[in-house]
Amino acid sequence: MQPVTARSAVLFLLIASAAFAVSGPFARAARPVHPLVIAAGRVALAALVLGLVNARAMRRALPTLTPRQRAHVFGAGALLAAHFALFQWGLDRTSLPAALSLVALEPLAVVVWAWVLFGIRPTRPEQLGLSLATIGALVVARGAGSGEHRVEGDLLVLGAVVLYGAYVAAARGIRDALPAHAYAAFVYTGASLSLLLALPLIPGALATASPLPQHAAVYILLLALIPTLIGHTAVQWAARRMSPSIVALVSTGETLGGITVGALWLGTIPNPSEIAGGLFILAGTTLAILASRGTESPSSA
């Protein structure tokens, strides 16, 4: 891994955190479009751009993959699709501060999946971080029933967090078979196809997109360009040059930035339980990722 300067690390964290911070607020602003339409739209647009940019690399890489590797890539795309769907759905069913606080658990989900699948046991600081973050999640859940905060939405976001850990584990399992840019293009293509196939199965989802409100189209486009393309591109670039601990700090920046943007722009002020639980989650996550021995955990929202 090439050494990087403190200035480069700070610049990366500012850019990536800012890109991911607008994800939740933009998705809320796209209402009343169904959350699955928002998820499908942002991923499909991102897949289109990535496919066009990486068409030559994808054509070269596809014949080199075995049937098992192709199934692996499609499975990773399906996991990413389910992650986006649950996150957008959960965001729609609970308060913005609660959803963004729970998203900060994503690096810890990566730690747990690495333990389960690859036997990479968490260190004691990581275990302490997991404990603090779990307490924080329970405290956040106690705020349910106040304003827009609902347990149903919290559980959907937690499901998205768990699936994100599985998605990163899947990426780890095939990282040597494809270049990063080609892999990302294939995975986003698989994710967009999965979401587009699921749309007709969700009652009432397509009705909210026919016709698609102009404001929703703008925010879906912005979601595809800023958090999905710019944010993930920055993380993929950093993952090859910076320590995983620095890359994982984007999740903390995403939570703090998203809550701040939501409060200033949408007026979504966190209640006391959300503030207290969010602080526990951020403390636990920061402790765990700073103590990380190399678990990869880029942000996703």
Rank of each mutant, 00 (worst) to 15 (best):
residue 153 G to L: 03
residue 153 G to W: 05
residue 154 D to I: 04
residue 156 L to C: 08
residue 156 L to W: 14
residue 157 V to D: 02
residue 157 V to W: 02
residue 157 V to H: 02
residue 158 L to G: 03
residue 160 A to L: 05
residue 161 V to M: 00
residue 162 V to R: 02
residue 162 V to G: 00
residue 162 V to M: 06
residue 163 L to T: 09
residue 164 Y to S: 12
residue 165 G to C: 06
residue 166 A to P: 01
residue 166 A to Y: 01
residue 166 A to G: 03
residue 167 Y to R: 03
residue 168 V to W: 09
residue 169 A to R: 06
residue 170 A to E: 08
residue 170 A to I: 08
residue 171 A to R: 14
residue 171 A to M: 14
residue 171 A to S: 12
residue 173 G to W: 05
residue 173 G to Y: 02
residue 173 G to F: 00
residue 174 I to M: 13
residue 174 I to E: 04
residue 175 R to Y: 06
residue 175 R to D: 10
residue 176 D to Q: 13
residue 178 L to H: 12
residue 179 P to A: 12
residue 180 A to R: 08
residue 181 H to W: 11
residue 181 H to T: 15
residue 182 A to G: 07
residue 183 Y to C: 00
residue 183 Y to Q: 13
residue 184 A to E: 10
residue 184 A to R: 12
residue 185 A to S: 15
residue 185 A to P: 15
residue 186 F to C: 06
residue 187 V to A: 06
residue 188 Y to T: 04
residue 188 Y to N: 14
residue 188 Y to D: 07
residue 189 T to W: 11
residue 189 T to Y: 05
residue 190 G to D: 07
residue 190 G to H: 09
residue 192 S to W: 11
residue 192 S to N: 13
residue 192 S to K: 12
residue 192 S to L: 14
residue 193 L to P: 08
residue 194 S to R: 01
residue 194 S to F: 13
residue 194 S to C: 15
residue 194 S to H: 03
residue 195 L to E: 13
residue 195 L to F: 13
residue 196 L to D: 07
residue 196 L to N: 05
residue 198 A to R: 09
residue 198 A to Q: 04
residue 199 L to Y: 08
residue 199 L to I: 12
